[in-house]
Structures are given as structure tokens and as C-alpha cells.
């Protein structure tokens, strides 16, 4: 998928993560993370964001993430939402079990 516009998903409520996706000229993912649990889970959160974007076929974007302690499933959901919004597309395939 190609990111065409800036899009936002999620909120700054506790247990949520706000993801802003911007188109990028670089063929890479740049993730800026501000998290309440940065020391403990910062690395993991960046990886989940990155993996999720690759899963939906986004390999070029600038990600600004403001995290208030969201679980991995919430991060995945918000990233996917932002990605499809930014690409102006609808999700067409839904997977089964993640585990």
C-alpha cells in the first residue's frame, strides 16, 4: 500500500496509542515514539509498529506515535487503521488467530 495522505488513528487516553502516518520520500519506515513505558517496552512497541506496517504492505512512511501504555493488539489495530486511512483504501482480508 502507498501512503498518500497524512492520517491519524487512536487517542491519547490511557491504554491507547495515537498513530500519525505521513508519506515519506525515503523507502524506509521512520518511527518517532513518545511512550509512558518507553524504558520497559519502547523497543517492543517500535517493532510491533514496524511489523504491522510491513504486514499491510507499507514500507515507506514517517510514524509519530504517542503511547499511553497500549497493549500490542491495540498498537496493531491503530497502526492498521492509520495505514488504510492514509492509503485511502479499505481492508480486504482479515486474518484468523494472531497467536
Amino acid at each position: 500500500m502507498k501512503i498518500k495522505n497524512v492520517a491519524l488513528a487512536g487517542t491519547m487516553e490511557s491504554s491507547d496509542i495515537m498513530i500519525t502516518l505521513e508519506p515519506s520520500k525515503e523507502k524506509s519506515l521512520v518511527i518517532e515514539l513518545d511512550s509512558t513505558v518507553d524504558k520497559q517496552f519502547g523497543r517492543k512497541i517500535r517493532r510491533v509498529i514496524g511489523d504491522t506496517l510491513l504486514e499491510v504492505g507499507v514500507d515507506s512512511a514517517r510514524v509519530i506515535a504517542v503511547d499511553k501504555g497500549a497493549l500490542d493488539c491495540v498498537i496493531r489495530a491503530r497502526v492498521k487503521t492509520a495505514a488504510y486511512r492514509a492509503a485511502g483504501e479499505e481492508c480486504c482480508h482479515w486474518g484468523g488467530d494472531t497467536k
Binding site: V74, A77, R78, K80, T81, T98, K99
Partner: peptide
């Protein structure tokens, strides 16, 4: 609506 759909889908698959 789209955000909620993704959220519930991911939650059901993980929790």
C-alpha cells in the same frame, strides 16, 4: 467505525 473494527478484530484474535 473503521478504527473500532480493527480494534475489536485484533482484540478478539489476541486476548
Amino acid at each position: 467505525k473503521d478504527a473500532a473494527r480493527f480494534l475489536v478484530n485484533e482484540a478478539l484474535r489476541t486476548l
